[in-house]
Simulated scan of single mutants.
Amino acid sequence: MSGSSQNGETNGPSKETSEADLSERRDRLNRMLEGQRAAEDAERKSQKSDAPGYAQAMKLSSEFIAGIVVGGGVGWICDHWLGTSPFGLIVFLLIGFAAGVLNVLRAAGEVAHPEARMKRDETQDDDRK
């Protein structure tokens, strides 16, 4: 390089060439950055998609366990109050298990909630009339 180009002084033809080179380099850099941003966005979306799945799993498992625990607790209290030891616990534990399964199915959307089922039945009755 000559001394004049190092001092920032450029001649006409080399200035046009350098602007074209800079423009080309800038375009390449922009394309590379767009690719990086797209990759980062895809990674961020995949990380976010795991969180709702974990939340749904925790919700379903807690509803199932809560049904069993409440059923067992009610059965244990009934046994101590009525003196019918293990029968109340067994019966209410099974009822709690069934309630837990029903809660999981409702939360997953497989079974309609009672209010929604009643509204659906009312609209079907109105359509039949």
Rank of each mutant, 00 (worst) to 15 (best):
M1T: 02
S2N: 06
S2Y: 06
G3P: 00
S5A: 11
Q6I: 04
N11P: 05
P13W: 04
P13A: 12
S14V: 07
T17W: 09
T17V: 15
S18M: 14
S18A: 13
E19N: 11
E19L: 15
A20R: 14
D21W: 10
S23M: 10
S23E: 09
E24I: 04
R26D: 07
R26L: 09
R31A: 09
R31W: 00
L33N: 01
E34W: 05
E34I: 06
G35W: 00
Q36I: 11
Q36D: 06
Q36L: 12
Q36A: 11
R37S: 08
A38C: 01
D41V: 13
E43T: 03
D50S: 12
D50K: 14
A51P: 01
A51S: 12
G53F: 05
G53D: 05
Q56N: 12
M58D: 04
S62F: 02
E63L: 15
E63T: 02
F64Y: 07
I65L: 10
I68G: 02
V69N: 07
V70E: 07
V74D: 00
V74P: 00
W76C: 08
I77E: 04
I77D: 03
I77N: 01
D79F: 08
G83A: 12
G83K: 05
S85I: 06
S85N: 08
F87S: 11
G88Q: 08
I90D: 02
V91D: 00
I95P: 00
G96A: 04
N103C: 03
N103L: 05
A108Y: 08
A108F: 11
A108V: 04
G109F: 06
G109T: 12
A112E: 11
P114I: 08
P114G: 09
E115G: 15
E115K: 15
A116G: 12
M118D: 13
M118A: 15
K119T: 12
E122T: 14
D126T: 12
